[in-house]
């Protein structure tokens, strides 16, 4: 996305709650293509609070993905595999 002209953007959003809900659907891949197109093209680049909010949500998600995924210890994975094979043998 190109950086919009900040000086021309609205400083307040009248529908912040509704906008946040649409924005959330877009980020979660739940919005229809029309909703997405309309919001991204018609609203986001003209509304400072929504523009900031969108980029903040994206950044939080990236941080979550980078910092909050723990892998299963290898010996646990092996032990589960082994128990299932024993189960099969019974």
């Amino acid at each position: 996305m190109n950086s919009p002209d900040f000086s021309k953007m609205k400083k307040d959003c009248q529908n912040q709650r509704e906008c946040f809900e649409i924005l959330q659907s877009i980020i979660d891949g739940e919005a229809t293509p029309q909703q997405k197109e309309h919001f991204m093209k018609e609203h986001l680049e003209q509304c400072m609070p929504c523009y900031k909010s969108y980029h903040l949500e994206v950044a939080i998600r990236e941080l979550l993905k980078a910092k909050c995924s723990q892998h299963a210890p290898q010996e646990l994975v092996e032990s589960i595999r082994k128990k299932v094979i024993e189960n099969l043998a019974q």
Binding site: C68, S69, Q70, H71, A72, I80
Partner: peptide, 13 residues
Amino acid sequence: MPHINSMYNFAYR
């Protein structure tokens, strides 16, 4: 088995 890491993370959280 391919989901074991995601599942562990869910269990841990």
